[in-house]
Measured scan of single mutants.
Amino acid sequence: IRCIGVSNRDFVEGMSGGTWVDVVLEHGGCVTVMAQDKPTVDIELVTTTVSNMAEVRSYCYEASISDMASDSRCPTQGEAYLDKQSDTQYVCKRTLVDRGWGNGCGLFGKGSLVTCAKFTCSKKMTGKSIQPENLEYRIMLSVHGSQHSGMIVNDTGYETDENRAKVEVTPNSPRAEATLGGFGSLGLDCEPRTGLDFSDLYYLTMNNKHWLVHKEWFHDIPLPWHAGADTGTPHWNNKEALVEFKDAHAKRQTVVVLGSQEGAVHTALAGALEAEMDGAKGKLFSGHLKCRLKMDKLRLKGVSYSLCTAAFTFTKVPAETLHGTVTVEVQYAGTDGPCKIPVQMAVDMQTLTPVGRLITANPVITESTENSKMMLELDPPFGDSYIVIGVGDKKITHHWHRSGSTIGKAFEATVRGAKRMAVLGDTAWDFGSVGGVFNSLGKGIHQIFGAAFKSLFGGMSWFSQILIGTLLVWLGLNTKNGSISLTCLALGGVMIFLSTAVSA
């Protein structure tokens, strides 16, 4: 259960009878995928790494000078000259100064003066180019299975845990398959586009800190620079940016070097996208990844198990997540596992009318040892309800109150669905055939309105939902006002479609 501690969480529900669903994975976010007769899966884009970055340009932001020398000439005696002028490691300046009897010249006039100092770069920052084909995306998957609280967001041991898996995709191999043991396998067909235009970005490294910066900004930095990788004795261009020549006297000129420019660069980098280094690879934390999940090989585990009949206890007080759902960790005293956990939410304890829904599909106890633990997640209705676990006299209950409203949740879900469709863009549509167009249209309606429909009408039977949709269509056909007619027709059509397409 990876997503319960992530604030940016998206719930995606598969269409009834569908074998695939489109998701948008982004750094700092987590996606929970639910479908009829399929286990619930949490998917998170953990890291995006980039390798084989080529150094484009380096800037010196802290330097020192040494070996200063000057040469001067009297008027009419030609130009002052130093051998160091031809050495690229030196920074030199030529000027004219007033000369006369007082400073060793027989004539009054302008004399030539040249001053040089050896330039040494102490600290530099480097910009590297990123090729999209060198990106690698690491995705962690977790099935809502027989897990306890100690396994949440624990990325170790996934090789031997059938509840978890790690997959890596690249532009050259965008397809992967996550093996989930008894739950089958989940196929991923990803489109490795981060949403960032790397043709316009460089990877900047300064003092063990890293950013993504725009090329134009990078090339306009007014500091000494050299092109390409460091060859040991780089040729620094624009050395004068960190060196200041003071007022010249008759035979000498003082040279000083400016202080470190790291603070000024940090100020200019305010708002830039931060990154990290992992050995020789860069780690990015921006952008998104679009994936199509193929769920035809994914299956529920323990459908044929019998119900657990022994007593359950709450190991922890049920807690609310950031998303309005409830996490419950229970301990089973029996030894008759594997068995299914009898769990439901009810409005009252007399009729036990089921409300809400299970995020953890078909929760089971897989071990036959005593005191096995299991964590599950529920989506309670707004208002008061009861969490009921167990059967008969051994069942345990917990009162729950959820604040908020169904309308607010439906609106929030619609906005999130619209954002998801905007990110998917043209990849969500198939114009290759008439059937493809209608299929894409259905998927689009489901992406945007599916979660809201589930919130508003999830407790009704599909037949009642179709009746309401048919009534809206009838009202649309018999209303003389054009805008009201079109609105009723659209709402009725969407409702009829979703009542037959969205899983219960």
Score class of each variant (00 low, 15 high):
Lys316Ile: 01
Phe431Trp: 11
Ala80Asn: 10
Thr254Asn: 09
His214Lys: 08
Glu240Pro: 00
Ile341Leu: 02
Asp393Met: 14
Gly432Tyr: 04
Leu223Met: 13
Thr351Gln: 15
Gln36Trp: 13
Gly232Ala: 11
Gly417Ser: 10
Phe108Val: 06
Ala504Arg: 02
Ala54Gly: 03
Glu62Arg: 01
Gly493Ser: 13
Ser173Val: 02
Pro380Tyr: 12
Val97Tyr: 05
Gly436Ile: 02
Phe411Gln: 09
Ala346Asp: 01
Gly18Cys: 01
Leu25Arg: 02
Asp296Met: 10
Lys239Thr: 06
Ser64Cys: 03
Leu376Ile: 06
Thr126Lys: 01
His226Cys: 15
Met206His: 05
Asp430Thr: 06
Leu188Asp: 10
Val33Tyr: 07
His401Thr: 02
Arg94Glu: 14
Met53Ala: 01
Val328Gly: 01
Thr32Ile: 07
Thr88Phe: 05
His266Leu: 14
Val256Leu: 00
Ser16Asp: 03
Leu25Glu: 08
Asn52Phe: 02
Gly195Cys: 10
Tyr386Asn: 07
Gly392Tyr: 08
His266Asp: 12
Met345Ala: 00
Glu44Lys: 11
Ala80Tyr: 11
Gly476Ser: 11
Leu196Phe: 15
Arg402Ser: 01
Gln147Trp: 11
Met125Val: 11
Arg73Gln: 08
Val257Met: 11
Asp348Met: 06
Glu62Asp: 15
Asp83Ile: 12
Val50Thr: 03
Leu82Ser: 08
Val6Cys: 04
Met495Lys: 10
Gly184Thr: 05
Ile448Gly: 06
Gln89Cys: 12
Thr47Asp: 00
Arg99Ile: 03
Ser483Val: 01
Met206Arg: 02
Ile152Gln: 10
Gly493Met: 15
Asn481Val: 09
Glu262Asp: 08
Lys394Thr: 12
Ile387Trp: 07
Pro380Asp: 09
Asn172Cys: 09
Thr120Gln: 04
Val303Leu: 05
Glu159Asn: 02
Asn207Gly: 14
Ile341Tyr: 06
Pro174Asp: 09
Gly18Tyr: 01
Gly287Phe: 03
Pro354Asp: 02
Glu262Arg: 05
Leu471Lys: 08
Thr313Ala: 15
Phe497Ala: 02
Cys488Ala: 10
Pro224His: 05
Leu498Trp: 08
Leu96Trp: 12
Leu358Thr: 10
Leu441Phe: 14
Pro342Gln: 13
Thr40Lys: 11
Gly14Leu: 01
Asn237Val: 00
Ala264Arg: 14
Ala35Gly: 15
Gly102Asn: 05
Thr115Tyr: 07
Glu377Pro: 02
Thr95Tyr: 11
Trp217Cys: 13
Tyr202Ser: 01
Ser142Gly: 15
Lys290Ser: 12
His219Leu: 15
Asp71Ser: 07
Gly182Leu: 14
Asp393Asn: 14
Met495Ile: 14
Gly469Asp: 11
Phe312Pro: 03
Thr120Cys: 08
Thr360Gly: 02
Arg94Asn: 06
Glu191Gln: 10
Glu412His: 12
Asp83Val: 12
Asp230Ser: 14
Ser185Tyr: 14
Lys38Arg: 15
Ala227Glu: 01
Glu276Ala: 07
Met421Asn: 05
Leu456Pro: 10
Val33Leu: 15
Lys123Gly: 04
Phe218Cys: 08
Val6Trp: 08
Glu191Tyr: 06
Ala422Asn: 08
Asn207Asp: 14
His219Glu: 01
Val23Ile: 15
Trp429Arg: 10
Gly279Leu: 00
Thr313Val: 15
Phe438Met: 09
Ala490Ser: 15
Leu489Met: 14
Leu269Asn: 10
Phe431Thr: 10
Ala310Trp: 09
Leu376Cys: 02
Ser260Phe: 12
Ser461Asp: 10
Val423Met: 14
Ser483Tyr: 13
Lys84Gly: 13
Ser405Tyr: 09
Asp200Pro: 00
Ala80Leu: 04
Ser485Gln: 09
Gly450Pro: 08
Trp217Ser: 06
Leu298Ile: 14
Asn163Lys: 04
Pro338Glu: 08
Ala504Asp: 09
Thr353Asp: 07
Ser455Cys: 13
Glu191Ile: 12
Arg94Val: 12
Tyr332Gly: 05
Ala229Asp: 14
Val423Phe: 08
Thr95Lys: 12
His266Ser: 13
Ile1Cys: 04
Asp37Trp: 04
Ile496Trp: 11
Asn237Ser: 08
